[in-house]
Nucleic acid binder design. Structure first.
Length: 432
RNA sequence: GGAGACGUGGCCGAGUGGUCGAAGGCGCACGCCUGGAAAGUGUGUAGGCGGGAGACCGUCUCGUGGGUUCGAAUCCCACCGUCUCCGCCA
């Protein structure tokens, strides 16, 4: 959420930044509402002050047994009360209206974010590895060694489309990947391992901006919980409502959780295979930082995700999302795209965003500066480290051999009983 | 699920209708004291919103939201949360 004061002070900058996201002339609307709101607050508080003053005098009148004064004052307060009620209702209404408006306006892009309208205008800034030469490269669900372990029919019988059931060696590699990622983040990147709920209340979803605007993207239980679409929700909201010490920062967290997404609006996209599912696993990273350190942290977090792909020998590139393709809460986003030989394309496997104080404001997450001074909002960052299902796809496709067997990255073998291969018939093997 | 207790400032804790944003303590900050420190001692020490050039003023906040009352931390209702006992259970 945006700071009304900074919009007041700098409406041009605000409009200019939002324009890059295709939103025009927003400040005028906000400021006129704000002005109306402030005068309503002044009205209401003036009336309240009058009422309070009279009420305090009643106390004195009572204690000096001045019955006459008591009666007069009581009637005065009584009449003021009606005035206060209507005026403060109006003030509250306008305040709510302003909040509602501010809640639906996306974050401002940083000045170095490329301007563009959609993913075609994202800018590649880094490339690692060389896409392997594979004759007749197949997609993951077509590879002989993967097929027995990837059962879409049974999953759809149980749950419908966009679900998969993994079995045997593929299920084990999937599990190995998540363990591997967590271990690296904990032992090499100094992130704190966290196990979080996947069912959350409204407030948490507001904090990380899934609500109020994107309710249709997530699932809600009959008793009002939301299934998290990412553990960004739970990890980031761990600091909601808190006044931290500056020395607590940065807080670096990671979690491996299930994620649930309705994929409303993506009908027809990525319908085959397990690239886009209603339910998937993801290892997430979240950092809570001092405002001066969030940009540095953005680089650090991106490197944490890069390290995973590099250790798994998966070719990838990094793109900076353009203004039109960035998510609602982000000021700048690095997408890591992994090479998928079956599609002959780079596909998103991680998205690392710096949100500034946008989420902190919604969550009321602040810290007390060490050298005194007022509470300040923290900065938040989140990134995938990385999507487990998609990583499985990348491992299978990049490791596929012409005979349908799959070579697995050495980094995984400690998690696979030293195996480094899946045979063309779908069994884990140890080959020297 | 049944029964009960409770929710006050950074922390502990007093306050059961009147000037209470709230005693006292701890912690913290700054001073005094000291050769230096400890001890002692003095002062200060929440946040949001609004007004004001500023000093400062107003308003709201004692889990959250409503209500009663001239007046609520204190009474009533709902919700959220914590704890204890019983039951059930991975």
């Amino acid at each position: 959420m945006h700071d009304i004061k900074s919009i007041r002070e700098n409406p041009q900058d605000f409009d200019q930044a939002l324009q890059l996201r295709g939103i025009y002339g927003m400040s005028a609307k906000i400021l006129s509402l704000d002005e109306e709101r402030r005068s309503a607050i002044l009205d209401a508080e003036t009336a309240t002050a009058d009422q309070n003053k009279a009420a305090r005098e009643i106390g004195k009148a009572k204690s000096s047994n001045d019955e006459n004064a008591f009666k007069i004052l009581r009637d005065l307060v009584s009449s003021k009360k009606k005035e206060v009620a209507s005026k403060s209702a109006r003030a509250k209404e306008l305040d709510q209206e302003l909040t509602n408006l501010l809640m639906t306006i996306p974050n401002l892009p940083l000045s170095d974010v490329p301007v563009g309208k959609d993913e075609l205008e994202n800018v590649e800034i880094f490339k690692w590895g060389t896409p392997p030469e594979i004759k007749n490269a197949k997609e993951h669900f077509e590879i002989a060694g993967a097929k027995p372990g990837m059962d879409f029919e049974t999953a759809s019988k149980l749950s419908g489309s966009r679900f998969v059931l993994l079995r045997g060696s593929i299920a084990r590699v999937h599990r190995a990947l998540s363990q591997f990622m967590l271990d690296i983040h904990v032992t090499e990147h100094d992130l704190t391992e966290t196990m979080t709920p996947v069912l959350v209340r409204d407030e948490a979803m507001y904090g990380t901006n899934q609500l109020p605007k994107f309710a249709e993207d997530s699932y809600k239980t009959t008793n009002g919980w939301w299934l998290i679409p990412t553990s960004e929700v739970t990890l980031t909201n761990t600091v909601s409502g808190r006044n931290l010490s500056e020395s607590d920062l940065p807080i670096r967290l990671t979690a491996h959780t299930l994620c649930f997404r309705s994929e409303a609006g993506s009908a027809g996209k990525d319908t085959s295979g397990m690239l886009r599912q209603h339910q998937f696993e993801k290892v997430e990273m979240v950092s809570i930082t001092h405002p001066d350190q969030s940009l540095e942290e953005h680089t650090r977090m991106t490197k944490c995700a890069q390290a995973i792909l590099e250790k798994l020998c998966l070719p990838y590139r990094i793109v900076v999302l353009c203004t039109g393709d960035m998510g609602f809460g982000a000021r700048k986003t690095h997408d890591l795209e992994v090479w998928l030989p079956g599609q002959k394309k780079y596909r998103e496997i991680s998205s690392v965003s710096v949100c500034g104080d946008f989420q902190a404001r919604r969550m009321l997450a602040r810290f007390k500066p060490t050298n005194g001074g007022k509470l300040k909002f923290v900065h938040t960052l989140n990134g995938s480290g990385v999507a487990v299902g998609r990583c499985l796809i990348a491992v299978l496709e990049n490791g596929q051999n012409e005979d349908g067997s799959i070579s697995l990255p050495a980094a995984l073998s400690p998690y696979l009983g030293d195996c480094n291969r899946i045979s063309s018939t779908g069994y884990l093997e140890k080959k020297v």
